[in-house]
C-alpha cells in the first residue's frame, strides 16, 4: 500500500497535469484572437507577410499626416491620463491619509463612495453626467480634456484599492506624529513624509488609472469626444488594419503595465494580503461587501 508521502506525490502529479491541460486550453482561447489580430495586420492579399502597417504605426510623422484623427485621439488620451492621475492623486492621497489620522469613523463611508462606481454602469453614469457636462462645457469650453473629471470617478475604485494597500503597509499615524512633533506643517507631512512612503502604491494607482483611461470608450463616444479608443473605433470603418494594430498595441501596453506591477507589488512585504495588491486592486468587488476588512 502506498504511504502518505507517495500519495501526496501522486496528488501533486495529477494536479500538475490538470493544471497544464486547463491552462493550455484556456490560454489558447485567450491568445488565438490576439494572434489573429497580429495575423490580420501583417497579411498580404496573395499570401505572405508585410510589416507595412506596423512601420506606419511607428512612424510618427506619417501617422500624423495620414491619420490626423488617430493622432488627435492619442494626444487627447495622453492628456486625459495626466489630468486624471493628477486629480485622482490630489483627491485621494490627502483624503485617505487624513481619514486615517483624524476621522477613522469616516473610513467606511469613503470606501463606499470610492467603490460605488463599480456598481454604476458607465453607460448609466453617462446618462447622469449629461447635465453636469452641459454645464462644464458651457462654463469652461468644449475641450475633450474635461472628460478627465469624469474619468477620475471611473478610476476611483482601482486607485482606492491600490492606495489603501499602500497605507496599510505603513504606520501613517506614528510617522505623522513624529513629523508634527518636530514642527512640520501638515502640507510638509503630506509632501515629504506620506507621499514618499507611498511611492509604490501611488505608482500602481497611477499606472492602473493610465491603463484604464487609455482604454476608455463609453463616455467619450457618447459625449462625441475623440480619444484614442473612439479614434480607433471610427478608423475601424475605413482602415481596419491600422485600427486593429492600435487595438493590439493598447492591449499589449496594458498587459506590460499589469505584469510589471505584479512584480513591484511582490517586493513589498511577506504578508499574504499584500502579496496580491494587483489582484486586490483589479478585482471589482462592489462597495461595502467586506472585501477590505478593518484590522481589529
Amino acid at each position: 500500500m502506498a504511504g502518505p508521502v507517495s500519495q501526496r506525490a501522486a496528488v501533486r502529479r495529477k494536479q500538475a497535469i490538470f493544471r497544464w491541460v486547463t491552462v493550455s486550453l484556456v490560454l489558447a482561447f485567450f491568445m488565438l484572437p490576439l494572434i489573429g489580430m497580429l495575423d490580420f495586420t501583417t497579411k498580404v492579399r496573395r499570401g505572405g507577410r508585410t510589416m507595412a502597417t506596423w512601420k506606419t504605426l511607428m512612424n510618427v510623422s506619417e501617422i500624423s499626416t495620414k491619420y490626423p484623427a488617430l493622432k488627435e485621439g492619442f494626444i487627447a488620451s495622453i492628456g486625459l491620463s495626466v489630468i486624471t492621475v493628477v486629480i485622482m492623486l490630489a483627491l485621494l492621497v490627502p483624503t485617505m491619509t487624513w481619514v486615517r489620522l483624524r476621522l477613522p469613523g469616516m473610513s467606511r463611508l469613503v470606501e463606499f463612495i470610492c467603490l460605488l462606481p463599480l456598481t454604476v454602469p458607465a453607460i448609466v453614469l453617462v446618462v447622469g453626467l449629461a447635465p453636469v457636462y452641459s454645464w462644464v462645457f458651457y462654463l469652461f469650453g468644449e475641450s475633450t480634456l474635461w472628460l478627465g473629471l469624469a474619468y477620475v470617478v471611473l478610476v476611483l475604485p482601482y486607485a482606492y484599492r491600490a492606495l489603501d494597500a499602500g497605507l496599510r503597509a505603513i504606520d501613517v499615524k506614528t510617522l505623522s506624529e513624529a513629523a508634527r512633533s518636530l514642527g512640520a506643517s501638515w502640507f510638509r507631512v503630506m509632501w515629504r513624509i506620506v507621499l514618499p512612503n507611498l511611492r509604490t502604491a501611488v505608482l500602481s494607482a497611477s499606472f492602473l488609472s493610465v491603463a484604464l483611461v487609455l482604454g476608455e470608450f463609453t463616455i467619450a463616444n457618447l459625449f462625441s469626444r475623440r480619444n484614442l479608443q473612439v479614434a480607433m473605433y471610427q478608423l475601424g470603418k475605413s482602415d481596419a488594419k491600422i485600427s486593429v494594430a492600435v487595438g493590439l498595441l493598447s492591449l499589449v501596453f496594458a498587459f506590460v503595465v499589469l505584469f510589471a506591477m505584479s512584480f513591484v507589488g511582490a517586493q513589498r512585504s511577506g504578508s499574504r494580503r499584500r502579496r496580491r495588491p494587483l489582484a486586490a486592486a483589479v478585482a471589482p468587488a462592489p462597495a461595502g461587501t467586506g472585501s477590505v476588512k478593518e484590522p481589529s
Partner: peptide, 23 residues
C-alpha cells in the same frame, strides 16, 4: 495569467471586439 486576465477583463473594450473581427 493574472496580468493577462486583468487586461482582458478590465481594459479591453473596443479592442476585444476588433480581435474577434480580425480573427
Amino acid at each position: 495569467i493574472t496580468s493577462l486576465c486583468g487586461v482582458l477583463a478590465q481594459f479591453g473594450g473596443v479592442a476585444l471586439a476588433f480581435a474577434f473581427i480580425a480573427s
